[in-house]
Amino acid sequence: MTTEILLAGFGGQGVLFAGKILAYCGLMDSKELSWLPSYGPEMRGGTANCSVCISDEPIGSPLVLAPDILVAMNGPSYDKFINAVKPGGKVFIDSTLVEAKCERTDIECYYIPSSQLADDNQLKGGSNIILLGKIIKETGIFSLETMKKAIEKVVPPSKAHLIANNFRAIELGMNN
């Protein structure tokens, strides 16, 4: 089985970083996986997105066009991708920044005020990680232990002091 994940938002919101954590979770669990970023001018403050495939078999095309899991971190990303989500798919929305409410009945949407939660809990820029916490709670794709191991691997040694904050953000996402 292959789980296709698409993460989208503004450049700077940590979309690629969150995707990287999911990719490392796949590595930790000995899965096949791919991580493919959008690159080019959109990286400079426009919309950025990132495709992550997690599978038990070798990955074919790494480009996610119809996600099983969509993470929408801003309005334009939500508008662009909401109709691409596979029936039965799950959508994780930063409801601080996305006002829209989904009318599709064949998918499950989770509205998490993750930017607000990050600000309220002194986790500036942690909205992306809060959403990851919600994903593992609602989909069970990875365990909390796996995700913690992945974070320890992804956060560079020079920023090791941020690991605890990332753990806190994950747990915040799982409990909201």
Binding site: W35, L36, Y39, P62
Partner: peptide, 10 residues
């Protein structure tokens, strides 16, 4: 190509 260059895999 750009896809292979930019993507991450194990």
């Amino acid at each position: 190509d750009g896809l292979l260059g930019q993507m991450m895999e194990p």
